[in-house]
Design a binder for these strands. Structure first.
Length: 422
RNA sequence: GGAGGGGUGGCAGAGUGGUCUAAUGCACUGGUCUUGAAAACCAGAGUACUGCAAGGUACCGAGGGUUCGAAUCCCUCCCCCUCCGCCA
């Protein structure tokens, strides 16, 4: 969430930034409500603290009177305190109410937009900032990946649907090994820089709140009994790792990576675009996360983007990098790149990575700070994450782009060390 | 799952209703002393909010309650430890 101080001190800058997202007048109205509630809260708080001070002083004097045996005098003070106490109670309630609505308001206000983000409302206004590789020119009508997978018994969607449901495929034999090879390749590529983490695959609601899945994207997560959420991305446990902690400036940047399955409800999806591996309820992903000093987060964003691009280049997949326009930007992000690979069989682009800077928006929710080397107050750090990469669509693109007319396919040589049994 | 014991500052640890405005030790920072260091001695130091400021308020796992007054008593929840049971 945004800081109240920012909204208080510079409401116009916030409003301007939010209008770039195409935020409605209602969102703008929220800003004014924040300012109102903030003022109510501070006025009540100042008053309450003064009253509390009187009460504390008097209570101490009661202790003295009691010690000196002046019981009657003490009793008088006790009587007098009743008004003070009820006044404090009322003020405390008023403060709590203002704080509650302040939190609610702040949770429903999206992050600021970085100046380098292009204007725009729709997908078509995202800007292609980079393209790499040639879309393969095939002399025959290429198959979609689900056909190729069926031909070679790599993936069994039908039995997945029987055993779990739609969107829960089985990978079989060489298909399972390809999947595992990609995980190993992705993790190995991250290892020189990033610390490998094996995270919990369920998180509690505090963690889901911390990274912004709650309340904004509640419908996207599964919820199991006892209040656990199966993670929709490893971003959640990784970024929450340092929740409510104060780090040393010298610890930064912190770089974490993890492979994990991801579970998403994807309610309401249908049609050809969700066929095969295009959209699943369970899929695997290697995620990279960085916690950085606020001064460096945008450089780091570009480094992380390059990391993911290098993977696609090593896999020899044609791809493009999109800079998301203001209207397409996620709720929590200030700037976001998407990487899309070309899928020759479906003749369209598939998103395989999203790399984002959240600045201090998540850090404020999670209360993750660092102590400046020069001394001074702890300061919020910046959080970033990126997919490096999401598995299923990479599998789809590998199969579709490298197919031959006879239905066979080849895999890029970078994977050779990871493939041996089939 | 059963029984018991716990949760206090960076760490250890005292405190069981009123100078707790949280002792003490270790670690940390500054100073004195010293050629330099160590030791010793002196001083300082948490987080958040609030206030122009001086300062104030809150925080002893979390949330409620009792009381003029709660780290301390009561209730609910969370977490940790020990033993037993179960288990890959």
């Amino acid at each position: 969430m945004l800081g109240v101080e920012l909204i208080r001190s510079n409401p116009n800058a916030v409003i301007e930034s939010l209008s770039r997202r195409g935020s409605s007048s209602e969102t703008i109205e929220l800003i004014h409500q924040v300012i109102d509630q903030d003022q109510t809260r501070r006025e009540a708080l100042t008053l309450q603290q003064t009253r509390q001070q009187s009460l504390n002083t008097e209570s101490r004097s009661i202790a003295e009177l009691m010690r000196d045996g002046k019981k009657e005098k003490a009793q008088m003070v006790i009587e007098r305190q009743k008004t003070l106490k009820s006044e404090i109670r009322d003020l405390t309630q008023k403060i709590a109410a203002a704080e509650d609505s302040l939190t609610q308001l702040l949770l429903s206000i999206p992050n600021m937009v970085h100046p380098s983000v292009p204007d725009g409302r729709t997908e078509s206004e995202n800007v292609v900032v980079y393209s790499h590789g040639e879309q393969p020119t095939l002399e025959f009508e290429p198959l979609p990946h689900w056909e190729i997978a069926k031909l070679h018994s790599l993936i069994d969607f039908e039995r997945g649907a029987k055993v779990a449901g739609a969107g829960f495929p089985f990978y079989i034999g060489a298909g399972a090994q390809l999947h595992r090879a990609l995980i190993h390749f992705f993790i190995d590529s991250a290892l020189p820089e990033y610390t490998e983490i094996r995270p919990p695959l369920f998180v509690n609601s505090d963690s889901a709140k911390g990274t912004g899945q709650l309340p904004d994207k509640e419908g996207q997560m599964y919820l199991v009994d006892d209040g656990f959420y199966p993670i929709p991305t490893a971003e959640v446990p990784l970024t929450n790792y340092y929740r409510d902690e104060i780090l040393s400036e010298s610890d930064l940047p912190i770089k974490l990576c993890a492979h994990s399955p991801c579970w998403r409800r994807e309610a309401g999806s249908y049609g050809a675009h969700v066929r095969g591996l295009n959209r699943l309820h369970q899929f695997d992903k290697v995620e990279i996360v960085q916690l950085t000093h606020p001064n460096h987060s945008y450089e780091v964003l570009d480094q992380m983007r390059k990391h993911s691009e290098d993977l696609l280049q090593a896999l020899e997949l044609p791809y493009r990098c999109l800079l998301m326009c203001a209207g397409e930007l996620g709720f929590n992000q200030t700037k976001q790149y998407d990487l899309e690979v070309w899928s020759a069989g479906q003749k369209r682009w598939l998103e395989v990575s999203s790399i984002s800077n959240f600045t201090d928006y998540q850090a404020r929710r999670m209360n993750i700070r660092f102590r400046p080397e020069q001394g001074g107050k702890p300061q919020l750090l910046h959080t970033l994450n990126g997919s490096a990469l999401a598995l299923p669509r990479v599998v789809a693109a590998l199969l579709e782009n490298n197919q031959n007319e006879d239905g066979s396919y080849e895999l890029p040589s970078i994977l050779t060390p990871y493939l041996h049994s089939y």
